[in-house]
Amino acid sequence: MRIGNRDFAIGKHTYVMGILNVTPDSFSDGGSFNSLERAMSHVKEMIEEGADIIDVGGESTRPNHVQITEQEEIERVVPIIREIKKQYDIPVSIDTYKANVAREALKAGADFVNDIWGLKYDVNMASVVKEYDVPVCIMHNRDNTEYGDFLNDVMEDLKESLEIAKKAGIREEQIVLDPGVGFGKTLEMNLECVNRLEEFNRFGLPVLLGTSRKSMIGLTLDLPVTEREEGTMVTTVMGVMKGCGFVRVHNVKANVRAIKMTEAILKANGNKKK
């Protein structure tokens, strides 16, 4: 898969998407990077630690978040994206479910659209992705937790998103899938999603896992958001073992190391005695 000017060898390595929230209220790092200077300092740090993509978000999508206007979101993300592309040679993703925000981000140089509503929230999103011919991450989401057969229902929801993409003319090789851990799911459902990640490979598309510091980890370990790194790294290791192409994380250094160690173990043939 090609994102921006880089090729990603899906199936051979799990890549790291570093999170850059330029928001005042994101659940983990709200207010930490919502100035150009602080944001760029963090981008530099994540690149040095091994990030493969920088994911820029201008609106918090934490539970009970307050939606902001498209214009406010654009004003938050566009200057940051422009500056990242000016200073660094790294693919940039725009984390939004609004077509107009995506369009302005792509104009500013973004290479990838990360849509938490899987092309279903904004009817124009798929056409914007097609127009700019960029990869898109289609995440599973719904506004309730009422399922009949949980995982099969999730797969059916994703099929609906894929049909939207197909009708818009988005090429299959441009699509990444995200199981949507933390969105429209109970704790038990989120745990099941991670446990059965390999089942999402049935679509033949790269899978992105986004669990970093989420409530699934906090509730399981009874820990605040500031103490969820070990839990996040466990899910990253699971993602590698189950074939995920990408993980989306806050702590790039720790997760890059976890991936490197896991892949080394998985690739080891063992030293057989002659």
Rank of each mutant, 00 (worst) to 15 (best):
E73W: 05
I74V: 15
I74A: 06
I74G: 02
I74T: 09
I74L: 10
E75K: 14
E75S: 14
R76H: 05
R76Q: 05
R76I: 07
V77M: 04
V77W: 01
V77E: 00
V78R: 04
P79D: 10
P79V: 11
I80S: 03
I80L: 11
I80E: 02
I80D: 01
R82H: 10
R82P: 02
R82F: 00
E83I: 07
E83Q: 15
E83F: 05
I84M: 08
K85C: 08
K85Q: 07
K86I: 00
K86H: 14
K86T: 14
K86D: 13
Q87T: 14
Q87M: 13
Q87L: 15
Q87V: 09
Q87I: 07
Y88N: 13
D89W: 04
I90T: 06
I90K: 05
P91E: 10
P91R: 09
V92G: 02
V92S: 03
V92W: 00
V92C: 07
I94C: 08
I94D: 03
D95I: 08
T96L: 10
Y97R: 13
K98T: 07
A99V: 07
A99S: 15
A99I: 09
V101N: 02
V101T: 11
V101Q: 01
A102R: 03
R103Y: 13
E104Q: 14
E104G: 00
A105C: 08
A105M: 06
A105P: 01
L106G: 02
L106T: 01
K107G: 00
K107I: 15
K107M: 12
